[in-house]
Amino acid sequence: MKQPFEILEHPSDLGIEAHGNSMQEVFRNAAHGFMSVIAGASKIKSCENRSIVLQALDRENLMVRWLTEILYLYDAEKFLTADVKFETLTDTLLKANLHGEPYDASRHELKLDVKAITYHQLKVEGHDGDWIARVFVDI
């Protein structure tokens, strides 16, 4: 059984490799992996919702824009994402509701400042219920 996500480490990089049996699941697990890099993801409650719509050039571009959106909500609005529900997910369109809560210094531990999501060795592939996504972030 593959883990929903694992963290990849190189001297100057930090990456997330997510697995899933569908495109939705691999996008969700990538989001969970990403939040585990920023904050202790398990302690985030789902008390607020954010509705987002993203368009992209292709599937890989959509993955970068997806995690960039989650990063923006954290860095600019201090919103921590706990889970996600997709309404639509194609290679170029994503509509989703993010569940989470505002950052609370008394309960949440912030782990790393992520600068951005990169295209370095980016991969989002899947077939027959076996999906994998690999994304490196700049820290």
Binding site: L57, N61, R65, T68, Y72, D75, K115, A116, I117, D138
Partner: peptide, 17 residues
């Protein structure tokens, strides 16, 4: 800080398109 990070993120998309 985040301002510069976002400028680069934004313009990577602009340039790709």
């Amino acid at each position: 800080r985040g301002l510069g990070h976002q400028v680069c993120t934004d313009y990577l998309e602009v340039m790709q398109e």
